[in-house]
Nucleic acid binder design. Structure first.
Length: 868
RNA sequence: GCCCCUGUGGCGGAACUGGUAGACGCGAUAGACUCAAAAUCUAUUACCUUUCAGGUGUGGGAGUUCAAGUCUCCCCGGGGGUACCA
């Protein structure tokens, strides 16, 4: 039995004592680097299987790259600010700092036994004054650049706790802790001008599709398509035209025209109505004189304000008494509706409707019997026709043009009339970073009655959080602190107050990957270190960060480039989003979640509750969560089966990007496999004595075809391919096949020479090392007894001439059905294949007495004989 | 609603540019070893039949092809994102 406990402890100690995973320095330009990074965890106190999966993926890549001779940067840190620390303070009186640091410590005690190759010397906790002090300096420099500003806008406000709540903390319109009805409150807060980068954030998505080859040495997918699409939608750029429709009747004071925004100016000739939002100034004016409009607006306001209710509400409109004139087609006037589906917040709060080419407008026109006039002759006659291929019709001077040409021409025309301007709108909003919370980075600003807002002088940084705070009163402890906020104005010396808002925790995670390159530098970042290590070559994390974190981090990189700190615009060359770790969940007949320890098998093999034998409903595998009681504790698994077994298991069976179904029996299978590996090693140690410097490789000419060494190289080649495409589960499957080949040779007692066997075993053990490092190191040392202790194993050098396949199996089909196979030399002449196939006895009976119409021969693959 | 992904044995999943479907693992069945159990090893494991052989099979239906899990069209199921964005 493989003594995994002692072996794993032994190797962890060796690695630790020898700083085996210290980040190497890059000395020459020929050094290849690889920066492997996993999204930094929040120190909640528990390491769960999702973390384990995330870090195992990163570690396999880091170790593989290291073995291949890359200089690898593989750091770990803690995203340590945030609300849970304050909630803990409220619940059990622990200081957020103590709570956070003790969680970090306990999580680290679970991570260390996994044998992850982190350079712990670079560990960062974002709540350290050192880290957030640098962050404050970046904030001030952004302020100097005009990228930070104060803004008045609406926030979720809990009137009992006197605090802003995040959207996630508003449940059914009530504060999650106080239960008070959350109100919208207008508040001054700090914003980052991310919209200034909207265009670049959007445009660069294109280049993120493919990772630049120089970072990996082979072509590889950059970012997953779905993440790129999500970011694109989030930024939501639309280019169009705002057009003024002259109001034909009535006097509305300063309002003489209705301005609408459109992305389809080419369809202006198809306009048959305009619609405005209930909150539009014109609607309010109309309501004063038109009781029908007023009643309609009231009716709309009865719909609950939740997004859910609004989006499912029926689309309704009310036809006002006024009409407007379409500037492109002034001989016609069209009616104006007040409509519940037009949003005041987007565009101008007014639209024109072209029913023939927009689904919603079409439905609206049918409902209110409005004209539907097609202006695009497209590839289909059914309406609405929303495609863009086609030619313009019924559109005066646009007739005959393509849609895109007409769009340009119509826009030019409207602009020449001064009836509108081209306009680009974005869905992306500036990033509000103020939080009325204690456990965050203090915003380094001072409010002075005389000088206004004054940044804290850089030499006074960091602005440290006070340790002595009370959570007994509601509201922001910083604001309530007796002394902390009172300072002198750095400019005029008059009494002034500190900003008591702290930064959103996404701020810390927006630049930690840069700090990781130079965690001990006196400056926020060190340009040379960034030039060396950035970009992150492989970034691994959950898809839930597809938009916010990854967008903010990209934004920061661009800003830090503009501030002169770094020489690149995009921080992450490749992004890998791993799937969730799921587990079977159980419920009783009342829907109460049951843990595995609360159920048992009954006589018929079904599950019942231990308590009372009530029936148990077995749910599908769901994401592990405390509430569903389907958690599996990683610590316990390492204790029972060892780190290597857990590592190899979690990388097996399922592609990394898909959800992973936990299965403790299969983990046991991985444990059995490692025991087998160990048993084989023990046998080999008895049988062979390898000289410690048996590094001379076997001459190719001395290796016989079909020998184990040739087989090992074939597997090495396939394993490399699998690893290069991040198909870790396939690499493990191939290793198991190779193990079987090795066992077969041992059983057969046949003949690889000593040096052949040495090379075979080096391949066999070294390719296992990224997955199961402890057992691999131990096995290697037992077998080869190197004179100096090794910290890592080098990746075996593939010998393509040995990996070359000499014999292939040819499939023989008759009329496309497989009837036989035979072996042939690779690349044998096609006519030979044909003859041999027809001569096979198993084939004769299918072709005897029939006319052969055709024979399809695919070299090295198959012969298909077509008869009759 | 729209967009994206996905559908292969009891289960997780393999299958390079269309070319032997089910690698590898889990589970299951039988056997060996054992006083017995565990561990280990061997064999079988898509389905059906008249089983030294043949037929059917990759959600369903059509099509292209000598050949379709793979390509095209239609339909159905599952998952995710997003939402009146003009």
């Amino acid at each position: 039995m493989y003594p995994f406990r002692s072996t794993e402890a032994k190797w962890r100690k060796i690695w630790e004592d020898n700083y085996a995973d210290a980040t190497p320095s890059i000395v020459s330009s020929s050094d290849k680097k690889c920066y492997v990074l996993e999204m930094l965890p929040y120190p909640s106190g528990k390491i769960h299987m999702g973390h384990v999966r995330n870090y195992c993926i990163g570690d396999v890549i880091a170790r593989y790259k290291k073995a291949q001779g890359y200089k690898v940067l593989h750091p770990m840190g803690w995203d340590a600010f945030g609300m849970p620390a304050e909630n803990a303070a409220l619940q059990n009186g622990a200081h957020p700092r103590d709570w956070t640091y003790s969680n970090i410590e306990s999580m680290k005690q679970v991570l260390l036994p996994l044998g992850l190759s982190y350079d712990w010397d670079r560990e960062i906790a974002t709540c350290s004054d050192e880290y957030y002090g640098h962050e404050q300096r970046l904030f001030i420099e952004m302020h100097e650049k005009g990228l930070v500003y104060r803004k008045d806008s609406w926030v979720n406000w809990d009137p009992v706790d006197n605090t802003v709540l995040a959207n996630e903390q508003v449940i059914d319109g009530k504060g999650w802790r106080s239960g008070a009805v959350v109100v919208k409150k207008q508040l001054e807060h700090w914003c980052l001008r991310i919209t200034a980068y909207a265009d670049e954030l959007l445009q660069n998505l294109e280049q993120l599709k493919i990772a630049e080859e120089r970072h990996r040495g082979y072509a590889v997918e950059g970012w997953p398509e779905k993440v790129l699409i999500m970011q694109e939608n989030w930024i939501g750029k639309s280019e169009g035209l705002s057009v003024n429709f002259e109001i034909c009747e009535g006097d509305f004071g300063e309002i003489v025209a209705l301005t609408v925004f459109t992305t389809r100016p080419e369809t202006l000739f198809g306009a048959s109505f305009c619609a405005i939002a209930c909150g539009h100034p014109l609607a309010e004016r109309l309501a004063q004189t038109d009781a029908g409009v007023a009643a309609f607006i009231q009716e709309c306001q009865r719909t609950p304000a939740t997004e859910q209710a609004q989006s499912t509400a029926e689309k309704m409109g009310y036809r006002s008494k006024i009409t407007v004139r379409n500037p492109i087609n002034p001989i016609e006037t069209i009616p104006v509706f007040v409509a519940n589906f037009v949003l005041m917040e987007y565009g101008t709060g007014a639209i024109f409707g072209c029913p023939a080419h927009d689904e919603r407008d079409f439905a609206f026109a049918e409902k209110y019997k409005l004209p539907i006039r097609s202006v695009i002759h497209g590839t289909s006659d059914s309406l609405p026709y929303v495609e863009l291929d086609g030619t313009m019709v019924n559109s005066s001077f646009l007739d005959g043009m393509t849609v895109l040409d007409a769009r340009k021409k119509a826009s030019d025309y409207i602009e020449s009339l001064s009836s509108g301007v081209r306009q680009t709108t974005y869905r992306l909003r500036d990033w509000s970073v103020s939080r009325q919370r204690y456990w965050g980075c203090p915003i380094p600003m001072i409010h002075c009655e005389h000088c206004g807002i004054v940044p804290v002088p850089k030499e006074d940084l960091p602005v440290k959080l006070p340790a002595d705070v009370s959570f007994n009163e509601p509201g922001n402890p910083l604001d309530k602190h007796p002394t902390w906020k009172h300072v002198k104005c750095p400019k005029c010396g008059a009494p002034a107050t500190r900003e008591t808002d702290t930064l959103d925790t996404f701020f810390e995670s927006s630049w930690y990957f840069l700090r990781n390159c130079c965690p001990h530098d006196a400056e926020p970042v060190n340009k040379e270190a960034l030039n060396t290590w950035m970009p992150v070559d492989v970034y691994i994390g959950g898809v839930e960060h597809a938009v916010l974190h990854l967008l903010y981090a990209r934004f920061f990189t661009m800003v830090l480039n503009d501030l002169g700190y770094i020489n690149l615009r995009e921080p992450f060359a490749t992004l890998m989003t791993q799937g969730m770790v799921c587990h079977m969940s159980y419920q009783d007949e009342n829907g109460k979640w049951l843990g595995p320890d609360e159920i048992e098998k009954d006589a018929s093999g079904g599950y019942v509750t231990k308590d009372g034998g009530r029936p148990v409903i077995i749910g599908r595998a769901e994401k592990m969560s405390k509430s569903k009681k389907n958690l599996v504790n990683p610590e316990q698994m390492v204790e029972t089966y060892g780190a290597d077994a857990l590592r190899i298991f979690i990388m097996s069976d399922t592609p990394y990007e898909k959800d992973f179904d936990w299965n403790t029996e299969a983990l046991e299978g991985a444990w059995r496999y490692l025991n087998k590996v160990w048993r084989i090693c023990e046998q080999l140690c008895e049988k062979y004595t390898f000289s410690s410097n048996s590094n001379d490789s076997v001459n190719v000419n001395d290796v016989s075809k079909g020998s184990l060494l040739a087989t090992a190289h074939k597997y090495l080649q396939r394993i490399e391919i699998s690893l290069n495409e991040n198909a870790f589960h396939k690499a493990i499957a191939l290793h198991r096949e190779l193990t079987r080949e090795l066992e077969r040779e041992i059983d057969a007692e046949q003949g690889s020479s000593l040096s052949e066997m040495a090379e075979v075993l080096k391949i066999w053990i070294s390719v296992l090392m990224p997955f199961a490092p402890h057992i691999s190191m131990e096995a290697y040392h037992q077998l080869f007894k190197p004179s100096d202790l090794m910290m890592h194993l080098p990746w075996p050098v593939l010998r393509p001439e040995l990996a070359f396949v000499e014999r292939v199996t040819i499939a023989v089909q008759v009329n496309g059905r497989l009837r036989a196979t035979f072996d042939a030399d690779v690349d044998v002449d096609t006519s030979m294949l044909s003859e041999e196939a027809q001569a096979l006895s198993g084939i004769q009976k299918f072709i005897d007495g029939k006319v052969i119409k055709n024979i399809v021969i695919v070299k090295n693959k198959l012969v298909n004989i077509v008869v009759e």
